[in-house]
Design a protein around this nucleic acid. Structure first.
Lengths: 213, 213
DNA sequence: CGAGAATCTGTCATAGACTGACAAAAGTCA
DNA sequence: TGACTTTTGTCAGTCTATGACAGATTCTCG
């Protein structure tokens, strides 16, 4: 599958890699905002116009990678037994192999680190994680026994997606190891599964203390 | 409170209002992306340079309003009894008066409608709802009995914030009335409070397949 | 009222992101 | 080698956004 047969193909792949490498390097040394496309192009030894033939925009160098593991989540969800709740199914999918793929990707952590250090990128990063929200919501709807397009399925899907991003962001910021990521994700998903208001949830506000912890 | 004493103040307010009105009108008629700042400036009868003296960017005309009700949430949370769980406390805050303020603002629905129709704005809209996340998380941490900066408090806060946005977006898209918004929000918050992996109502957390490896 | 300070505005010039058009260069194939 | 396709660079242009300067307006105080 990774067989760029012709000379042309190989050259294209090399150019693309050169642009990404040059961009990430520059982003890390002088910051994302302070890095211009002209500089990236010069460092990659292509013309600025060529940059836009490979990427639609500057953020695409960071977030436009097609090989990212999160994209598989909806497809993998379909393989889980329908009796599993949305949270448990997602947890199992992540455990299967996505988490390891994430932590083993050497570029991933560098990307997230750049995003965390660039306010203007945070919104887009979050949205990036939300890309397959509709597919996830469709899967969740059946697990929750609600109509296919019910807004509650969307609520759950966006909460799950958001949790994933929040946890990963914190994990990268902390610089913890792979085991810790699994641990944090499990704890967070436990919260999602069992609810945020441990004692209450009753219409009559019976403020039982938080003592259940 | 709304006393623009000096002539200068009033003129500034008028200019600002003119820019917002012209922008919203243009966004609705020809779309956000297709509307240039030059056009907004011309319609508002100011120079393009002046536009940037009132707003930092084009999106600021839509999302940079300082009088938006959501900003009060963290402050209002502080007034809720600490025994209330994060979800119940937020629900009460919203019920108090924020929801009515939201539905009664004539510009709000138009703004959200423009955002929903402009993909490039969706990410920013979401982020806009996330603006006071850290404050919310700090409040939630005490209610959850975890350290002040625990990532789990952030997970809950972002889930709540995200739920609010998801529900409001769906509500605007559906064109429902104010009662329906309260109803949807209550249902969604019930989900958050009791957990996502509960098919019907299982108070005792019976970990279905949590026999994880 | 009038002078001076502070503020607001328009014009000009500029940087950076991004796009279309066209021609030169390189790869492909007969 | 020569026709054909793809990739690339150059050029010109639009749009967003910002800094600098000068003129006009408003405010303040004597």
């Amino acid at each position: 599958m990774r067989e760029p047969c012709g000379l042309r193909e190989r050259k294209k792949a090399r150019t693309r890699d050169a642009i990404v490498a040059a961009a990430i390097d520059l982003f890390e040394t002088k910051g994302y905002d302070a890095t211009t496309i002209d500089e990236i192009a010069e460092a990659a030894e292509v013309s600025p116009r060529t940059f836009f033939r490979y990427f639609d925009s500057k953020v695409d160098v960071l977030m436009g990678r097609k090989d990212e593991p999160e994209g598989d989540i909806p497809a993998r969800l379909a393989t889980r037994p329908p009796e599993e709740g949305p949270i448990e199914a997602t947890r199992q999918v992540l455990h299967q192999e996505l988490l390891s793929a994430l932590t083993e990707d050497p570029l991933f952590v560098r990307q997230v680190r750049i995003m965390l250090g660039t306010p203007s990128l945070l919104a887009m990063a979050r949205e990036h994680f939300h890309e397959h929200l509709d597919e996830m919501a469709a899967d969740f709807a059946t697990r929750m026994d609600v109509p296919p397009d019910d807004y509650r399925a969307h609520v759950v899907a966006s909460a799950v997606s958001n949790t994933l991003w929040t946890v990963v962001a914190r994990w990268v910021a902390d610089g913890s190891d792979a085991e810790r990521l699994v641990e944090m994700l499990d704890e967070a998903f436990d919260l999602l599964a069992t609810g945020f208001d441990r004692p209450a949830a009753t219409p009559a506000p019976t403020p039982t203390a938080t003592g259940s912890a």
